[in-house]
C-alpha cells in the first residue's frame, strides 16, 4: 500500500502523542498515586440502607490516627450528612451511595468527584490540609429538583473538631 512519506511522519507523531497521553495517565497513577473509583465495595440494597451500619446513620467516623471515614448518602435532593465535617491535615475516605436514583458527588473545583449509584458504594480517599469550606454539588441529573441539591464539606481545625465531637454533634 502506498503512503506518502509526510503522512508516515505524521503517523509516527500521532503515535508519540498517544503514548504521551497514556504515559501521563500512568505517571499520575504511580507518581502522585491517583487511584480510580472502582469495585472495591460490595453491592448494597438501596431500599434497605437503614439496615447497613454505615449508611443507617450517615456520619464521619475516626478509623485510625488522622484517618477518617465519611459515610455519605445522596438522595433526591440532598446529601447526608451536611455539612460533612472533618479535621485539618487528615486522610478522609468517602463511602458514597444513593438511596434512590443516580446522583453525582463533586466537591466543586477539586478532584474529589464520583458517581453515586443506587446499589453501589463509591469509595474515594483524599488528603485534606488547612481549614476550609467546600461546596458539594450533584453533577448528575436526578429529577426536577436537581439544581437545588447541594452539600458542604467543612475542613475545620483540630480543636474545633474535638469540641464538636464532645458536644455530641458528630459522633
Amino acid at each position: 500500500m502506498h503512503i506518502h512519506a509526510y503522512e508516515k511522519i505524521w503517523l509516527a507523531f500521532a503515535i508519540v502523542l498517544i503514548l504521551l497521553l497514556l504515559g501521563s495517565v500512568t505517571y499520575g497513577a504511580v507518581g502522585p498515586g491517583v487511584a480510580m473509583v472502582a469495585d472495591s465495595e460490595a453491592q448494597i440494597d438501596a431500599n434497605a440502607l437503614d439496615e447497613d451500619d454505615r449508611f443507617a446513620e450517615p456520619r464521619v467516623e475516626q478509623v485510625g490516627e488522622n484517618e477518617y471515614e465519611a459515610y455519605v448518602v445522596a438522595y433526591q435532593f440532598g446529601f447526608e450528612p451536611s455539612p460533612i465535617v472533618v479535621p485539618e491535615n487528615s486522610t478522609v475516605t468517602f463511602q458514597i451511595t444513593s438511596r434512590d436514583v443516580i446522583h453525582g458527588f463533586e466537591v466543586a473545583g477539586t478532584n474529589a468527584n464520583t458517581m453515586a449509584v443506587p446499589g453501589e458504594v463509591a469509595e474515594i480517599t483524599v488528603e485534606v490540609s488547612e481549614p476550609r469550606e467546600y461546596g458539594i454539588v450533584c453533577n448528575e441529573y436526578c429529577g426536577a429538583g436537581h439544581h437545588a441539591m447541594e452539600g458542604k464539606l467543612h475542613v475545620v481545625s483540630e480543636e474545633e473538631f474535638a469540641e464538636m465531637n464532645e458536644g455530641g454533634e458528630n459522633e
Binding site: G104, E106, A108, G109, T110, E133, Y134, G135, V137, C138, N139, E140, Y141, H146, H147, A148, E150, G151, K152
Partner: peptide, 16 residues
C-alpha cells in the same frame, strides 16, 4: 471551575 452540566441553576447558596 467545577460548574456542573445538566442543571437549571448552576449557582448555589452554600458556596461560590
Amino acid at each position: 471551575l467545577g460548574v456542573p452540566r445538566r442543571t437549571a441553576e448552576p449557582e448555589y447558596s452554600g458556596f461560590d
